[in-house]
Design a protein around this nucleic acid. Structure first.
Length: 697
DNA sequence: AGTTTAACTTAGAATTGAGATA
DNA sequence: TATCTCAATTCTAAGTTAAACT
């Protein structure tokens, strides 16, 4: 038995090793490919190009040094002067900023400001604001937003900001009552452990097991530390907490100074220039090392995600642009520099734990993200006109003789009706066990005669999906057929994969895929819910009530898409508080009502101690106020409870066509700021001008 | 024709910040 | 004037998909 087990294990190890070997080989091949590409065509140019680069690089470095020199000098000057100078001085701004604002404009601005300062008047003009890249007004529209389309002719940026080194704190771990000072590498891991204190990871078996495995690897061979249960990390976590408090307790000035400092640092990296337009980046900081926080029962949670060094970072930049300096990492160099103008990333790097690569790309407000995003909503809108045809198609496929077709039809039904994700295959050794439509297993479904299907499974991010739906006879019979005789762990749709569905969808629309149904469903639902608002009753709605109406619609979408959030820790308590406040308000209201009646009927006032108006009219007015406040409070309670575990933001940001919201707000005269916070408004600049007549249909 | 992966979108948690409130 | 609350922002994990690769 034991021998068998061992054999089995070695077998497994062999397989694993082979897998890893394969991966390595592939990587090497990939690198070779890159080299080859660079090598053949560009060999001739390479020499003088390198020369050029070097020149540019040196120049740039010199500039940088000059800048720093200036900075030192400047810091000695008075604050006021500094501020003024910063606003007007052209030469002190980083390259990215200077390019965009165009020197001319800045000079004009300077002149105006000089003039204004004489008059002591501050006048803002268009030049004071970040210019918006109005790509949606261009003739070719969002053409370059298509996947694989050319995205730039010129393209430059300043590279990435690396995570700071770990600073050893020299605080001991207490092991079995004894203080043990750890070598810096081990202390670092122990310190990362303290960062999950107070989170669910702290008590999760997989996390603890993996952390312990990692930690042991970093302990010296002769370390007395052998058992997790005997480890006491409190001294380390106290240190962390003390540091946090120190940060929190900084003076206002300190905070401001630090903020300004990081802002300056950030400014250097935060934007790229794409075709001469300054575009904001999403992330430019490389991920700091930490214990991996995989969701749900992720088998790798708790393992160390290692620090990223320049050697695993590839930059994407125009051939003509300066190669950014590798900052704060002396002796290190970028892995590669590429010039791919059909992709939207500025850098890609290897994840410090999982085998996949990650990307550094643009912020949601950028044109590079905005264009494909707008196309996404247009695609979903086009689906509206195709949906009947598609439904007819899969309805007839339900009764097909081919099992694969019946599965295709049934799966499409779920995607259409329930807005399920398509559900690709997952590697259970490396990832958490979650499913979508195609990967649903028999154990996830329960059928109840005559037509009800109960679904219960873990979806993306290990968020539980539970729903009971009444389906058509065909669907019910099909599903029953698919699951009968199968093991609980067998796939319901064993004859189809996401690619089959997407291929099927292509016959209706060349850019239709499974995920479009979710966008369509969300937008369609929002439109339908908002349509229920009767504009002729508009005058009886306050802004708050309109907002509430919108949120109710939004919530329907979020529920459809199963967008959840964890219940906040103080929820029950604050709910209690609000209910108590409500009771108090109700008592007050009743007292006031009696008081008003007493005044109206000329009866003597019962409770003279209360500060109530003596005048009947004033009392009545107050009564109405209190009533209104009470009603508002009641709906606030209802909303809070309804939103306890429902996340409205995800659908607002990713699923609902923003033009629907814009149009409705215009139609009912609700301030858009109420429903679209700043981030959303700047994400959808292309949608803001649509008229109230826009409909998603 | 099936499998893998590069490139992209979508997701909830954690952190930060701003405003309300005691 | 501190504290509390909630909204906004940041972070990065975890999906989908088409194209590239066997």
């Amino acid at each position: 038995m034991m021998a068998e087990l061992n054999q089995e294990q070695t077998k497994n190890n062999d397989v694993k090793e082979k897998k890893e070997k394969d991966k390595k080989e592939k990587k090497e091949k990939k690198e070779k490919k890159h080299k080859k590409e660079d090598g053949t065509k560009e060999k001739k140019e390479k020499k003088d190009k390198d020369g050029k680069h070097k020149d540019k690089k040196e120049k740039k470095e010199k500039k940088h040094k000059d800048k720093e020199h200036k900075k030192d000098k400047k810091e000695k000057k008075e604050k006021k002067e500094k501020k003024e100078k910063k606003d007007t001085e052209v030469g002190d701004k980083p390259v990215a900023k200077r390019r965009l604002h165009v020197v001319k404009h800045l000079q004009a601005k300077k002149k105006r400001q000089e003039k204004n300062s004489e008059q002591k008047v501050l006048l803002k003009t268009e030049d004071d604001y970040e210019p918006v890249n109005r790509w949606w007004e261009r003739e070719d529209g969002a053409e370059s937003g298509k996947r694989g389309a050319k995205k730039w002719d010129t393209f430059e940026h300043h590279g990435l900001l690396f995570a700071p080194d770990y600073e050893p704190i020299n605080v001991p771990l207490v092991y079995d009552g004894q203080e043990v000072y750890l070598p810096p590498e081990a202390e670092e891991i122990a310190y990362y452990w303290t960062s999950v204190k107070g989170t669910p990871y702290e008590v999760k078996d997989i996390f603890i097991k993996n952390f312990w495995k990692t930690f042991k690897e970093y302990l010296p061979k002769n370390s007395p530390i052998k058992d997790f249960k005997k480890c006491d990390f409190t001294k380390l976590s106290n240190h962390r907490e003390a540091e946090r408090q120190k940060r929190l307790n900084r003076s206002k000035e300190e905070k401001e100074a630090e903020k300004a400092k990081t802002a300056k640092e950030t400014e250097w990296y935060s934007h790229a220039i794409v075709n001469g337009v300054r575009e904001k980046l999403g992330n430019f900081r490389l991920e700091p090392p930490q214990l991996f926080r995989g969701r749900g029962e992720h088998p790798k949670q708790g393992l160390l995600k290692k620090r990223t060094f320049p050697e695993s970072v590839t930059l994407n930049i125009a051939e003509t642009a300066c190669v950014p300096k590798v900052c704060g990492m002396p002796g290190h160099a970028w892995r590669d520099i590429v010039h791919e103008n059909t992709v939207q990333w500025i850098a890609t790097f290897e994840d410090g734990l999982l085998q996949d690569s990650k990307y550094v790309s643009f912020a949601a407000t950028s044109g590079l993200k905005g264009q494909p995003d707008m196309l996404k909503y247009d695609r979903a809108k086009r689906l509206v006109s195709k949906i009947d045809q598609i439904r007819d198609s899969y309805r007839s496929l339900m009764k097909s003789k081919k099992p694969a077709d019946r599965q295709k039809a049934t799966a499409t039904y779920f995607i259409d009706k329930l807005a399920l994700r398509v559900g690709g295959e997952k590697d259970t050794e490396e990832e958490a066990d979650t499913v979508g439509c195609c990967s649903l297993r028999v154990e996830h479904l329960k059928l109840t005669e005559p037509l009800t299907i109960h679904l219960d499974f873990l979806g993306k991010d290990s968020i539980r999906y539970t729903n009971s739906v009444e389906v058509t006879k065909e669907v019910f019979d099909n599903v029953q057929g698919f699951i009968s005789g199968k093991a609980p762990t067998a796939q319901v749709f064993d004859k189809i994969a996401p690619a089959d569905l997407n291929e099927y969808f292509k016959q209706f629309m060349d850019d239709l895929s499974a995920k479009v149904f979710r966008t369509y469903n969300a937008s369609f639902t929002l439109q339908a819910e908002l349509n229920r608002f009767e504009v002729k009753n508009r005058s009886s709605f306050s802004q708050d009530q309109l907002y509430q109406f919108y949120n109710d619609a939004n919530r329907q979408v979020a529920i459809l898409c199963n967008h959840q959030k964890a219940e906040s820790k103080g929820h029950a308590q604050s709910m209690e508080k609000m209910r108590n406040a409500q009771k108090e308000m109700e008592r007050n209201y009743k007292a006031l009502k009696r008081h008003v009646q007493a005044l109206q009927q000329g009866k003597p006032i019962q409770d003279a101690s209360a500060k109530l108006p003596k005048d009947a009219k004033a009392a009545e007015k107050k009564m109405h106020e209190v009533k209104a406040r009470l009603l508002r409070h009641r709906t606030a309670i209802e909303t809070k409870e309804a939103n306890k575990t429902v996340s409205l933001g995800t659908s607002k940001v990713n699923y609902m066509d923003p033009r629907i919201t814009v149009a409705w707000c215009k139609k009912v005269d609700l301030a858009i700021e109420k429903v679209f916070p700043k981030t959303i408004r700047t994400k959808f600049p292309w949608a803001m001008h649509f008229p109230s007549s826009y409909v998603f249909e």
